[in-house]
């Protein structure tokens, strides 16, 4: 049916247009975004937990490291990290592999402008299929996201750890628990209640940070919206059209709005349970509504 698009009109043209292999690229990239979120969220939480624990460590250098990590990442625009980290991370991994895998290679790694490692140290290897390269690029993006948003999570968790009432920790100490026991058995289980508002916000931040994948060289929804929306001349496509970028980006806007709305509904439910019975205006409203 779609073999001769120039003969099509109206709806059938649109149906064919929206199902070209190129548009499939766009639809798949939504999967990329969801996959990124699914992997990054727990990883960032892990980084955040590590950062927060380090920041309250009794061992001074570790504490400085944790605090510096939180302060540095939060103080610098995330986009600057994205532009910087991916190249740095990539070169770092290849350098380490170079040191281990080809110690006999002569010449330094940096020759003028070139960054040269032996063929075996290439990451991924030069003859790997395209999907390996794409997966590797995607993994670098995940790590970069996790490092950056891990610092935000660390800040939230650090705040939550501090917010756990002092009395509870003192009680634990009075029971003869060691520092480590107090941390794992009292502080960590208790802090989640305080961390939840911050973490749910972080989730929303993370959703809204996904278009930055575009800057990391991953072919994401912004890339495809820009590529597909630009005007096309009949020489190079069967579906010529004018400048439709506004509509493509409108579609992205709607996608993100529905996605965050959905998250909001779920998170609100959890929040409502937590506000119940608190002596604040929100708690008061709940009480009045129930009465």
């Amino acid at each position: 049916m779609c073999s001769d698009p120039s003969a099509l009109h109206g709806f059938s043209w649109l149906a064919c247009y929206l199902t070209t292999a190129k548009h499939m690229g766009l639809y798949w990239s939504f999967g990329t975004v969801l996959l990124l979120l699914a992997i990054t969220a727990p990883t960032a939480l892990l980084f955040g937990f590590g950062g927060a624990s380090a920041a309250r460590s009794r061992f001074a250098p570790l504490r400085w490291f944790g605090k510096a990590y939180i302060a540095l990442v939060r103080g610098v625009p995330d986009i600057a990290f994205f532009l910087f980290f991916v190249i740095a991370l990539d070169q770092g991994i290849e350098y380490v592999r170079h040191l281990f895998l080809c110690p006999s290679t002569d010449g330094p790694v940096r020759q003028g402008n070139d960054f040269i490692v032996c063929a075996a140290a290439k990451m991924p290897l030069g003859n790997s299929p395209q999907w390996v390269h794409e997966t590797y690029g995607f993994s670098l993006a995940v790590i970069t996201f996790a490092i950056v948003y891990g610092a935000f999570a660390a800040n939230v968790l650090f705040g939550a750890m501090t917010a756990v009432p002092r009395g509870q920790l003192e009680t634990a100490e009075a029971y003869g628990m060691s520092h480590r026991q107090t941390f794992w058995r009292v502080l960590v289980p208790q802090m989640w209640v305080y961390a939840l508002p911050g973490l749910s916000n972080l989730w929303m931040v993370l959703i809204k940070a996904t278009p930055l994948l575009f800057l990391l060289g991953v072919e994401d929804i912004v890339y495809w919206a820009r590529e597909l929306g630009g005007s096309k001349t009949p020489n190079y496509t069967d579906y010529p059209h004018g400048d439709w970028r506004m509509w493509y980006f409108f579609f992205l806007l709607v996608f993100y709005l529905s996605f965050t709305r959905l998250s909001e509904l779920v998170l609100n439910r959890i929040m409502a349970k937590l506000t119940f019975g608190q002596a604040t205006a929100a708690g008061e409203k709940q009480r009045r509504a129930a009465a």
């Binding site: 940070a209 996904t210 930055l212 970028r245 409108f250 992205l252 993100y256 709005l257």
Partner: peptide, 18 residues
């Protein structure tokens, strides 16, 4: 809702074309 629910990056693109 509209401004908090969508990425600033996409808002910039959309606003420019709008």
């Amino acid at each position: 809702f509209v401004f908090r629910g969508s990425p600033l990056f996409v808002q910039f693109f959309f606003a420019y074309f709008l």
